[in-house]
Design a protein around this nucleic acid. Structure first.
Length: 465
RNA sequence: GGCUCGGUAGCAAAGUGGCUAUGCACCUGAUUGCAAAUCAGAGUACGUCGGUUCGACUCCGGCCCGAGCCUCCA
């Protein structure tokens, strides 16, 4: 039985889908004006695992996963102006880059990726409803605001009281707002800005309304899971609840999930602090699966400290797992082992991926124990390792390829696979002649080039460090 | 100021009122021409001060330290 920590109640709850034949999840995706950083990678990977696990439980055809793209907002406009390019040009470029990064890390594509600019009708409809129901008002400056005081329960998700928010408010006082906590649904266009026609004049949507409009449009008024980074809990998700519940009169979302931050030197990784690393930057040094493993090696709600040392650790751990798989042809067998049960129990417990990964190592050790003594068992275990790893999006490449893949450095340095094979042949010849000095010289040479040689009963294998 | 969440061995990271987490690193043994890999084994923990309990890393309270939200942010 899957249990999920629901941020709305701050409790672990048994997950009961509204409709088992159509489990629905919406995740707030990226605002596309720059490359994704490791913080974005975490959202991508964490909810990819949630999606995979839901698919494993309910069947792939019974899960609807929607992750939006924000393709119109102040930062996008500013960046496009700065670059002297069209907005669509900028956003399309970064959507493409985001897909490349996500694909590299083995993140499955969601069923839908709605874009704000393609859902203006739904956005305008929802704003109109909110105005008609008295939850929103048009201000003198042409903006339309949501009247926070009208919504009973505002602050529930973030555990905040309206008065407390006002007291500690860092919100700039905006003359047009009736209350500083009111937030914008529709922004009147300034001259030269991109805009859409509306009953309140030309303008563009506020950030929060798009997610309410698109999630309702794609998944209905009331769905199962809504996810995103912890920084979206307030005000973004709080505002979504206010908008959606007020507009539809329905419940909106049952379970709210937020992943913790990625930190650098114990500080939140963020654009404003400038301490972020983009995914593609990190990919120059580490394989994409290493990033994925690193992210899943801690629980999704905990903070995750980014450092080279942690990535190195992830790489070593993954190497151990792939080494167990190397040279074994997996074959499906009746698999209902204790480790498998433990793996599922770990995942059922609010997606405890570190504990689930620990089970992977249990299987790997068992594979190594019996790989020469009981090949049938080893093949069955390998198959199980692949299957469970697959639920985390791990271990899906060919072991040999993973172990021998080199991250090409900028100088194109390093030995080619062919050069390595040649040296290994020379070394084998030396060994046949019991020329240990010559053999070791070649091994040192390879080692210096980052290639590790392993002499086994089945012959010599190699891998890149 | 208000509101959250944490402090576990060298580094990461789970977890439980009494029973080996796990990974990386390190040490010992087996294996190997020597290595590497692998297997077997050892060691190093639960911020601090009290309380509850037969027994607490695990529950309760104080204190110290850290992170986050209250403005855009995944």
């Amino acid at each position: 039985m899957l249990k999920i920590h629901n941020n709305l109640t701050r409790q672990l709850e048994s997950f009961q889908p509204i409709d088992k034949k159509n489990v629905r999840m919406y995740v707030c995706g990226m605002t596309v004006y720059d490359f994704c950083h490791i913080g974005h990678a975490r959202v991508l990977v964490v909810f990819d695992v949630v999606y995979r696990y839901l698919c494993a439980i309910y069947g792939k055809e019974h899960v609807s996963y929607v992750r939006n793209v924000t393709d119109i907002d102040d930062k996008i406009i500013a960046r496009a102006n700065q670059n002297g390019e069209k907005i669509e040009q900028l956003t399309n470029r970064f959507i493409k880059a985001m897909h490349e990064d996500a694909d590299a890390m083995g993140v499955l594509r969601p069923n839908e990726e709605p874009r704000a600019t393609m859902h203006m009708q739904q956005i305008l409809d929802m704003i109109r409803t909110l105005v008609e129901k008295g939850y929103a008002y048009a201000a003198k400056n042409g903006d339309v605001y949501y009247d926070v005081s009208k919504f009973v329960g505002y602050g529930r998700l973030s555990g905040k009281q309206l008065d407390d928010l006002r007291a500690g408010s860092r919100v700039e006082v905006d003359e047009a707002k009736e209350d500083p906590l009111d937030f914008v649904l529709w922004k009147a266009a300034k001259p030269g800005e991109p805009s859409w026609e509306s009953p309140w004049g030309a303008g563009r949507p506020g950030w929060h309304i798009e997610c309410s409009a698109m999630s309702t449009h794609c998944l209905g008024t009331h769905f199962d899971i809504h996810g995103g980074g912890l920084d979206l809990q307030f005000p973004h998700h709080e505002n979504e609840i206010a908008q959606s519940c007020a507009a539809t009169g329905d419940d909106f979302v049952n379970v709210w999930m937020h992943n913790g931050f990625v930190r650098v030197d114990n500080e939140k990784m963020s654009k404003s602090l400038g301490n972020f690393f983009t995914i593609r930057e990190v990919l120059k040094k580490y394989a994409p699966e290493v990033i994925r493993y690193f992210i899943l090696s801690s629980h999704y709600r905990s903070p995750l400290n980014y450092s080279d040392q942690h990535l190195d650790n992830a790489k070593s751990a993954l190497t151990t797992l792939y080494t167990a798989l190397r040279g074994i042809i997996p074959s499906k067998a009746a698999a209902d082992s204790a480790t498998r049960t433990a793996f599922m129990a770990a995942m059922d417990d609010d997606f405890n991926t570190p504990l689930a990964i620990a089970q992977l190592f249990e299987i790997a050790r068992e594979v190594n124990r019996c790989r020469t003594t009981d090949t049938i068992k080893a093949a069955a275990l390998a198959s199980e390792l692949l299957e469970l790893g697959g639920m985390l999006g791990l271990l899906q490449q060919d072991a040999e390829s993973f172990l021998q893949a080199g991250v090409v450095d900028d100088n194109g340095a390093g030995l080619s696979n062919q050069a390595i094979d040649t040296l290994i042949q020379q070394r084998l010849q030396a060994r046949a002649n019991k020329d240990w000095a010559g053999s070791d010289r070649i091994r040192d040479q390879l080692k210096a080039a980052g290639v590790v040689i392993e002499d086994g009963p089945q012959g010599t294998t190699w891998r890149r460090q």
